[in-house]
Amino acid sequence: MLFGHGDNAYQFQQKIVADFSTNVFYKGPSEGLLAHLSDQTKYIGRYPEVNAESLTLKIAESLGLSSRNILVVNGATEAFYLIALVFQQQYSEIFAPSFAEYEDACRLYGHSITFTNYDSLTTDYRCQASTVWLCNPNNPNGQLMPESQLRRLIANNPQTTFIIDEAYKDFSMGYHGIIEQVKAFDNLIVVRSMTKKNAIPGLRLGYIVANEDLIQSLLKLKQPWTVNTLAIAAGKYICDNPDVRFDLKALLKDSQVLQQALSAIQGIEVLPSSTPFFLIRLQKPADKTLNYLVENHGILVRNASNFRYLDNHYLRISSRNHQDNMLLVNALTEWMQIP
């Protein structure tokens, strides 16, 4: 597992007043969801459903798919390890920089791995690998391949199974995801998280969408009871009660204001992104920048130097509200002016 991740305030003694290191919706879970979960604690004296069957049905209904196309999992990470196990000892291509668990899962199950820079990805790309791992929108840089281009890429490479990580599908304007294409492509697996938008990463909840044969292959290898009672309850509540506080247009507007302010600071370059999170490249080292922000301002950012193709001059920033964003701008302005 990659330990240099975001949302790691527990590793610091200083109080964190503004956390820009995590891509999870910064407002936290809704009051309605918290109240519902509080009521559901009376059921934790019983075993959960073996494979989250009731939530599977609820998700399938919301997507207009058969429940046989859905597998609910203990967060997207469980999905990646299950998929890597099904395709064990095969040849995988990972477009990077991206989420490190693709690589970790593939290595655990004996894959041969090729890494390709995300910038080289086009619809004309010809894949040589058995499986391709692609995050869309991508973490950490927020880059997005539109649905039409993604469909062409998959259609042009029928010999390759595409694992599309849509954990941040809700964080990019106009991107509706490619789940409906599992009806057309047998070489497509889509993984989604239910925790990013709804701010419940501690519950670990996600799902896989694929053709029935692939779902059955995954189900045969999946351990029972990996999704707990409260996670199942949260997922069903989320399907019926979308969080109205999640306003992507407002999030992106605040992010654009933040990016413009950071771009005005000498020694900082902001890289383009389709999401509220984005990369910045600094003239100063990222690790020293992170430590300065934590120790002097109680601000936490994501050191992105442990992503492939990035070095110790990259930070990932996930926009918050305007007040918090200006704390970051002022702190980085101060830091960049220090000789």
Rank of each mutant, 00 (worst) to 15 (best):
residue 63 L to P: 01
residue 14 Q to R: 06
residue 41 T to S: 07
residue 24 V to R: 05
residue 56 T to D: 00
residue 44 I to S: 04
residue 32 G to C: 13
residue 43 Y to D: 12
residue 14 Q to S: 06
residue 18 A to L: 04
residue 12 F to K: 01
residue 64 G to Y: 07
residue 60 A to D: 00
residue 25 F to K: 03
residue 18 A to M: 08
residue 15 K to T: 11
residue 46 R to E: 15
residue 51 N to G: 09
residue 15 K to N: 09
residue 62 S to A: 14
residue 47 Y to K: 14
residue 44 I to L: 06
residue 28 G to I: 11
residue 39 D to E: 14
residue 8 N to Y: 11
residue 31 E to A: 15
residue 63 L to M: 12
residue 38 S to P: 00
residue 10 Y to T: 15
residue 25 F to C: 00
residue 58 K to T: 13
residue 16 I to D: 07
residue 50 V to T: 14
residue 22 T to Q: 05
residue 16 I to W: 03
residue 60 A to Q: 04
residue 35 A to V: 11
residue 12 F to E: 05
residue 16 I to F: 05
residue 61 E to T: 13
residue 16 I to V: 13
residue 55 L to M: 10
residue 14 Q to W: 04
residue 29 P to K: 01
residue 19 D to A: 09
residue 44 I to V: 13
residue 49 E to M: 06
residue 39 D to Y: 02
residue 13 Q to A: 10
residue 29 P to Q: 02
residue 24 V to M: 05
residue 51 N to S: 12
residue 27 K to T: 15
residue 44 I to W: 01
residue 12 F to Y: 14
residue 24 V to C: 03
residue 62 S to L: 11
residue 60 A to K: 01
residue 50 V to D: 11
residue 57 L to Q: 02
residue 10 Y to K: 12
residue 28 G to F: 08
residue 20 F to L: 04
residue 8 N to P: 03
residue 23 N to D: 08
residue 58 K to A: 08
residue 30 S to K: 01
residue 29 P to M: 06
residue 20 F to C: 05
residue 9 A to I: 05
residue 57 L to D: 04
residue 57 L to N: 07
residue 10 Y to L: 12
residue 56 T to R: 04
residue 47 Y to N: 15
residue 44 I to Y: 01
residue 37 L to F: 04
residue 25 F to V: 07
residue 43 Y to H: 13
residue 65 L to C: 00
residue 49 E to H: 09
residue 19 D to T: 09
residue 42 K to I: 15
residue 13 Q to F: 12
residue 23 N to Q: 10
residue 37 L to T: 02
residue 65 L to I: 05
residue 46 R to H: 14
residue 63 L to F: 13
residue 59 I to P: 03
residue 9 A to V: 08
residue 41 T to E: 06
residue 22 T to P: 01
residue 52 A to D: 02
residue 62 S to H: 13
residue 52 A to F: 06
residue 9 A to C: 09
residue 29 P to C: 06
residue 62 S to W: 11
residue 21 S to P: 04
residue 63 L to N: 05
residue 30 S to D: 02
residue 45 G to Q: 12
residue 48 P to E: 04
residue 22 T to D: 02
residue 21 S to F: 02
residue 57 L to P: 01
residue 61 E to P: 08
residue 19 D to Q: 07
residue 34 L to R: 09
residue 42 K to L: 10
residue 31 E to T: 13
residue 19 D to S: 13
residue 37 L to W: 03
residue 33 L to Y: 01
residue 57 L to G: 01
residue 20 F to E: 00
residue 30 S to F: 02
residue 58 K to R: 14
residue 62 S to V: 11
residue 38 S to D: 10
residue 43 Y to W: 14
residue 29 P to A: 04
residue 63 L to S: 05
residue 43 Y to L: 14
residue 24 V to W: 02
residue 59 I to E: 06
residue 44 I to G: 06
residue 22 T to Y: 03
residue 63 L to A: 07
residue 45 G to W: 09
residue 22 T to V: 06
residue 37 L to Q: 00
residue 49 E to D: 11
residue 29 P to G: 05
residue 12 F to R: 02
residue 48 P to S: 10
residue 19 D to M: 04
residue 42 K to Q: 13
residue 64 G to M: 07
residue 32 G to N: 14
residue 60 A to C: 07
residue 65 L to E: 01
residue 55 L to W: 00
residue 8 N to Q: 15
residue 31 E to K: 14
residue 45 G to V: 14
residue 18 A to S: 14
residue 38 S to A: 10
residue 13 Q to C: 11
residue 27 K to R: 14
residue 23 N to K: 08
residue 33 L to W: 03
